[in-house]
């Protein structure tokens, strides 16, 4: 069993415990044990860089925590993945920045040298597709639409994972678990969640367009693998449906739907089926 540190990020830590629970259960079934990353902090996301160029200290702090443990990181959200990978690359390519960051990290008893790999849960499952196939023993019986997490594959020159315009990796994982996936015309569009931070109604309209498209295509559930996508499509669905009641659609985390296919009890993947 390989051991990696779970970096849940702020959203999952605060309000998406079902995502964390199911990630731990499902990755355990395919040979990856997730350890708690005590004292982790916000990655910086797009929030801290909007205010300060010190954002990289925050990202580097998390990388340094993992390096101190000698372990690689598994992420659950797109933005955490992109931010940590962005910081790791900057620190790898810019010795001056690495030096400045390390002077700050030294003040809190840490240092970073560039030896931590960051992988989103889709990447981890994609690396173990054979194990996903082998562990999937139950026919789930619903057709799902996919909400691809933008920041796991864009910008392509940073992420080096999947087709940046028509991502396929999450589809491969879901199909490896024997779950039918429907195509819908809004599949390659961003959910729009980050727009909630500045313009709520336009963000809700983007979600309405997406859910409507998925429902028309025959989806019985929407699979997400990012806390931000879940925040809009799931946690804000009551607002989405207030003016459009026909857009109600179950939103399911990637490890939850795969966990159902693996026959993991509902309670162990945070579901009430």
């Amino acid at each position: 069993m390989e051991r990696r540190l779970l970096y849940p990020g702020c959203l999952v830590l605060a309000c998406l415990q079902d995502y964390e629970l199911s990630a731990r259960s499902v990755l355990g079934k395919i040979g990856v044990e997730l350890e708690d990353m005590h004292e982790f902090a916000c990655c910086a996301s797009s929030i801290a860089p909007s205010f300060t160029n010190e954002w990289i200290n925050l990202a580097a702090y998390n990388l340094a925590l993992a390096e101190e443990k000698g372990m690689d990181i598994v992420t659950l959200c797109g933005s955490c993945t992109k931010t940590l990978k962005d910081a790791a690359r900057i620190l790898d390519e810019d010795a001056g920045q690495l030096g400045r960051v390390n002077r700050r990290l030294t003040e809190i008893g840490l240092s970073y040298s560039g030896r931590v790999k960051v992988s989103h849960i889709i990447e981890v499952m994609d690396e173990r597709l054979d194990e996903v196939v082998a562990a999937s023993i139950v026919e789930v019986g619903i057709r799902v639409a996919l909400q691809h997490p933008c920041n796991v594959y864009r910008p392509e020159e940073l992420m080096h994972f999947d087709d940046p315009w028509h991502p396929q990796k999450m589809r491969q994982v879901v199909q490896a678990a024997g779950i039918p996936v429907v195509d819908y015309d809004q599949e390659d569009e961003c959910c729009g969640s980050a727009l909630l931070m500045s313009e709520e109604e336009p963000a809700l309209n983007l979600a309405r367009k997406k859910l409507s498209s998925a429902i028309k295509a025959g989806a019985e559930g929407m699979v997400v693998s990012c806390g931000n996508c879940a925040m809009l499509l799931k946690n804000f669905q009551h607002k989405i449906c207030k003016s459009a009641p026909g857009l109600s659609l179950p939103v399911i985390f990637l490890p939850q739907i795969v966990g159902l296919a693996m026959g993991i009890p509902a309670a162990e993947i945070g579901m009430k089926v």
Partner: peptide, 29 residues
Amino acid sequence: TIREIWGLGEIRKVDPVKIRKLLSGTGRR
């Protein structure tokens, strides 16, 4: 408290003093 309800282990939070050392600016730099 919430993690215990979900059957998740306890997580130690980061010491805010460390964050102040990492983000020592005023927030608008």
